[in-house]
Design a binder for these strands. Structure first.
Lengths: 322, 322
DNA sequence: ATGAAAGCGCTAACAA
DNA sequence: TTGTTAGCGCTTTCAT
């Protein structure tokens, strides 16, 4: 009926009736039923966004990018959280797809067979974000974490460090952290080096974890001259520990994290890290599902992880000191 | 038809046909259409959760509580973000209510008239969380931020501090931060004191902001002996600044934040703060919408903000030192 | 234990 | 420019 036309600004409606309908709707407190609308039109203005965690500082940034880019499109993000569990991811996807969203944005390229099948058959754009080291279901937007790890290794070696340790999460399902470590070790190997020590932890990242792990690894392997952390939060904890313990940074020991979170900008010393391009990844993914950008012909948008020097790594050997 | 019965484990279905349907569904990659289902049944397993921000460390915790408690109920949270804008909140609510969720959980008690009307007429449980200083639409779950501010003032005065400054956000729409300050000033007034200086900032909280503001306020008012921050993140930044600047903490100057985020646990010195009971608030709200708990007769679940002593406040005058 | 049929509140196509 | 009508894919009720 005409009401529908008015509420959706569709078709020709006289200004008079338009006005009438609008005021009637307002006074009645009418809220249209999108369930019926969606059923009738076979279209729904929702974009499913599936991420592993909200407490990880990384994902709010991605969501920010998505949300900013979706804002003027009439599309609405719907967020699902998997807690890094493939089984949960499958459930969440099933739930979300049963609402027939107009697109899916999900973190990572590792998914259960059933999840992949669901997504491939959904008949909607599926953008896998954050990580491009893997096989796309539809389209990938992200950085190579292998490359990020490898590049950091190169910088560290170049700066003259030789006895290098790693501190990171032991979550088999955090594939991006795992790939960074793989790339990192490859990078070291190219220079004829290998990791001297590793320290793993479970659960969320916090300054405290970073401290504890750093103390532990330096107790076990006191002659380490560099520590690579799997994220900035534990890296910052390690940094605080080293400062207190009196290590001279970056000469006696260097440190690097990963992500480039600006929350931590005010630390006593700026932590060396890699910007994971989180906001940009969110934006690009959203632009694709919104149809603002055309799908890339090779189904891939690869961004470059960006090295952030900070103060916890020496200048490369042979370079001018500033 | 029978298929529907199987997929929802309803009614009597023979094990044989049941099996048949299930395998057929799996091989076809069938995903039921909840839009149609929702329209037919007039029920939908979604709970709308509306919060101001995701980058604020507070809300992921609340969401964690909600999600944990909803997990075994078949209900799914759908998250909407308002960026502290009442207009956006109205839009988000409109969108969400048009999907006829089975409940709404939203942060704060300040909403536009239209928002209140929508929610009141939705005919579903509406739980306003975080803040109980205001008029409920339906039911409130949270802490009194006025009380939180007032109690912190009492502790500070009791510990013998007298020249007190405040560092906080200047967001007119962050009502909880505003109320804490109101309560704080009331608390000071009861002791015959008033704030000696204030420093406001805009935008997100970070360590760096905390540093800068602290330097600024201490430059303007060098004889302050206590700083109350509107959250832990800027409090931590201030703490780092004071440590570096050589202030003796907590004797020369004391510091306190708000929230009790454990992300920051590993700071060189533990920041005095107030636990805002975020996870518990999320849990209780979720239990209400899920029907696990009965609605409280007085439409209010008031939790107590919990003082966390930390190391940045002196022991109360006259108490035994430990 | 299974099938048949009505109808949820809209949209889209068509008629007036 | 406005009104009419037939579904959208399920759930619910009733009949078998």
């Amino acid at each position: 009926m005409t009401v529908s036309r008015v509420l959706r600004n569709r078709g020709d409606v006289s200004a008079a009736t338009r006005e009438k309908v609008l005021t009637a709707a307002k006074t009645l407190g009418y809220v249209p039923n999108k369930i019926a609308g969606g059923l009738a039109s076979q279209r729904v203005n929702l974009v499913a966004v599936v991420i592993p965690s909200l407490s990880n500082l990384v994902f709010p940034d991605v969501l920010g990018g998505i949300s900013a880019e979706l804002d003027d499109t009439g599309l609405q993000p719907v967020i699902g959280v998997t807690n890094y569990s493939p089984a949960r991811e499958e459930m969440v996807l099933y739930e979300m797809l049963s609402w027939r969203p107009s697109g899916v944005i999900l973190a990572g390229v590792e998914h259960s067979k059933a999840s992949r099948a669901m997504l491939a058959n959904a008949g909607i754009p599926v953008i896998e974000i954050m990580d491009i080291d893997g096989e796309a279901i539809d389209t990938l937007v992200g950085i190579s974490h292998i490359r990020a790890g490898r590049e950091m290794a190169a910088r560290i070696v170049e700066a003259g460090y030789r006895r290098i340790g790693f501190v990171g999460t032991h979550m088999p399902e955090d594939h991006r952290a795992r790939k960074r470590l793989v790339g990192f070790e490859e990078g070291l190997a190219e220079a004829g080096l290998q990791l001297e020590a590793r320290e793993y932890y479970q659960g969320g990242s916090s300054l405290l974890k970073g401290r504890e792990l750093t103390e532990r690894i330096l107790t076990r392997a006191p002659d380490l001259d560099f520590l690579y952390y799997s994220n900035d939060m534990i890296g910052a904890g390690g940094l605080l520990y080293c400062l207190e313990a009196g290590y001279e940074i970056p000469n006696r020991i260097g440190l690097a994290g990963f992500n480039g979170v600006d929350l931590l900008d005010g630390l006593p010393v700026r932590l060396t890290t890699t910007d994971a391009r989180r906001v940009e990844i969110g934006r690009r993914a959203a632009r694709l599902v919104a149809g603002k950008d055309a799908m890339p012909p090779d189904r891939l948008i690869a961004l470059a992880p960006t090295f952030i020097p900070g103060d916890t790594i020496r200048a490369p050997a042979g370079s001018a000191r500033n």
